[in-house]
């Protein structure tokens, strides 16, 4: 009972301090709060240390990664992907994908990234697609073969653009690794980096790349991230004028074609059926996909033999 009350008094103190300082940063509040509590014997020295540490950790998140750093992370994540999956070097198909993808990216909430959006087809029969941080997007031939229309390809790309826009890749970096790296960067920012700092940062960089690629290729994002990317896709598609039903149609194809136990979308994504249910809950309406002849013609010309 006594310790409970002390804890309550301590929290009250934190609240009071925050009130007195207006919108002072939480970190400052926690620091001052812990030194007060320590002098009152409410928390031990070690506990105080750990509170200060955790709040500093909270203060540094993926949001502190600058667009320029995101760009370098994305380049390497992309390089790991194209080293694992061979690119499909068909200029006409890749040009079409870039034209469509760029059109969609401009309608997203984050049309401009440090190095811009770029799209590439992977020469793989797997049903797969990846979005590296900053806007490098990869789609497998297997995935494109499931697409029956431009609207369906647009749906796949819009979902990946959603992951970039929401910076899901960066959020799979281990938090303590990120905090450490960002702290090194901040501490050294007044000076030119020496070789030791570069070596430290390269280790943190390697770790970050592994965290992201392991999530993208092996483990998959959480269902809530996928739901967010689908919601972003629906809004991008509607803004451009594509039928958001294209996403539902595409998921229907996946439902039919994904093999249970497969190492592709079957492994890294929630079941297409549950994604369709989530999209339905967004109330996008259920009109049938409109087939526009000119769209269908250019889709077949570019991807007909994929």
């Amino acid at each position: 009972m006594r310790s409970l009350r002390s804890a309550a008094v301590f929290t009250l103190f934190l609240g009071g301090l925050a009130g007195a300082h207006g919108c002072a940063s939480f970190e400052q509040v926690a620091k001052a709060g812990t030194s007060f509590a320590r002098s009152q014997g409410v928390v031990t020295e070690t506990q105080a240390q750990s509170i200060v540490k955790t709040t500093s950790a909270v203060a540094k998140t993926f949001e502190d990664i600058t667009p320029e750093q995101e760009y370098y992370i994305g380049r390497t994540v992309g390089a790991v992907i194209v080293s694992r999956y061979k690119p499909y070097a068909n200029a006409e198909a890749n040009n079409y994908l870039n034209l469509l993808g760029q059109t969609l990216a401009q309608a997203s909430d984050r049309p401009e990234t440090f190095g811009g959006y770029h799209f590439l087809i992977l020469d793989s029969g797997e049903i797969n697609a990846f979005a590296a941080p900053g806007g490098l997007i990869f789609v497998s031939r297997g995935m494109l073969r499931l697409c029956r229309s431009e609207d369906a390809v647009a749906a796949v790309l819009a979902h990946e653009i959603g992951h970039v826009q929401l910076r899901h890749g960066l959020q799979s970096i281990d938090k303590s690794r990120l905090t450490q790296a960002l702290t090194t960067i901040a501490a050294e920012s007044a000076k030119t980096m020496g070789s030791k700092e570069i070596a430290d940062l390269t280790r943190a960089f390697e770790g970050s790349i592994t965290d992201i690629t392991a999530t993208m290729i092996n483990n998959g994002y959480s269902r809530s991230f996928e739901r967010e990317a689908d919601a972003a896709a629906v809004s991008i598609l509607s803004r451009v004028g594509y039928d958001p039903e294209g996403l539902v149609a595409m998921l229907g194809e996946m439902e039919k074609n994904l093999k249970p136990g497969g190492l592709d979308f079957a492994k890294t994504h929630p079941s297409p059926k549950s994604r369709i249910d989530d999209i339905r809950s967004l109330n996008v309406g259920g009109k049938a996909a409109r087939v526009v002849a000119a769209r269908q013609a250019r889709f077949h010309k570019a991807l007909g033999n994929i």
Binding site: I65, Q69, I73, R75, I198, F205
Partner: peptide
């Protein structure tokens, strides 16, 4: 600064 061309 940070993750940059040197780190790459």
């Amino acid at each position: 600064k940070g993750f940059n061309a040197d780190v790459e």
